[in-house]
Design a protein around this nucleic acid. Structure first.
Ligand SMILES: [Mn+2]
Ligand SMILES: [Mn+2]
Ligand SMILES: [Mn+2]
Ligand SMILES: [Mn+2]
Lengths: 141, 141
DNA sequence: ACAGAATTGTAGCCACAGCTACAATCTACA
DNA sequence: TGTAGATTGTAGCTGTGGCTACAATTCTGT
């Protein structure tokens, strides 16, 4: 590989992470809201993310095209099998990142905020290291 | 604060992080390239980030409007005092995140890639925890 | 049943960040 | 000194993700 290709590789990965970030947060939120409220409405997602219902509407439409969510006009938003699988993976990863931040001494509120952005940039290899160190610290304390 | 405001706070922070991410990466790259090559040209940045020179051009123009970089037509790209200060902070934070990932056992290549995305979502409080744990692990090994 | 409130959908605006194609300028070498 | 190649600038396209304003639909309480 050329020198500048090595330099640009991290940025390419970061841009790719961002292109899938919204889908990951949406399926995770839809699963959570559906579990706690019985169903997930557009307005629930708008409140959850702090955006207008219009933004939610367009995003849900795109996720439906990608086969992650299923919805009909004026009906709740649900996950496809594919979307539900992605939601589980994202929920697990999110929880690992959050628990890891707690384990190294970050306060819960800051950990919750930082984890929401960090989670999408944590590769499987780094995630394994997070799990190990959370275990280690848990056994210490 | 209302319940859903608490829920949306992390996402608001993440969106804010992303709005400043490009500026942070650019000033950091301009400082590095200028230090190693003597001057930083548009084409250097294009290679560094793996994007076209057009994208670099527009971004540099926006950063100039924000008072972070200084450039003239067909001349190298330089940092203002404000941009140089931001570059130092970003470089330090980037290095802390990278060294922390190494300290918890992530391989160097993965650490370099993940750090490029993670750095922008690490709050000062979390950064302090990273520093502490890097020190601890350094004294152990 | 129906009026008003809540929810959802649509039209159209913006900024950002990527791109190709082409024009202009500068640099280096024959 | 010219000119070919490298570099930079410009025009204009795309997709994404935010918004307001307004329309349509559904839900709810009297
Ligand atoms: Mn999440
Ligand atoms: Mn997230
Ligand atoms: Mn970065
Ligand atoms: Mn990010």
């Amino acid at each position: 590989m050329s020198d500048h290709a090595k330099q640009s590789l991290p940025h390419l990965r970061t841009r790719n992470d961002h292109s899938t970030e919204l889908a990951e947060d949406y399926v995770e939120a839809i699963a959570e809201i559906a579990a706690s409220h019985g169903s997930c409405r557009v307005v629930d997602l708008a409140k959850h993310f702090g955006v207008s219902h219009v933004t939610v509407n367009r995003t849900v439409g795109r996720l439906q095209n990608e086969g992650l969510v299923k919805t009909e006009p004026y009906k709740p938003v649900g996950l496809t099998a594919k979307g539900a699988r992605l939601a589980v993976r994202c929920r697990e990863r999110h929880e690992i990142v959050y628990q890891f931040l707690l384990a190294i001494g970050v306060d819960p509120q800051t950990a919750a905020i930082d984890a929401e952005g960090i989670e999408h940039h944590v590769s499987p290899a780094t995630l394994r290291c997070f799990v190990n160190w959370s275990k280690t610290n848990a056994s210490i304390s």
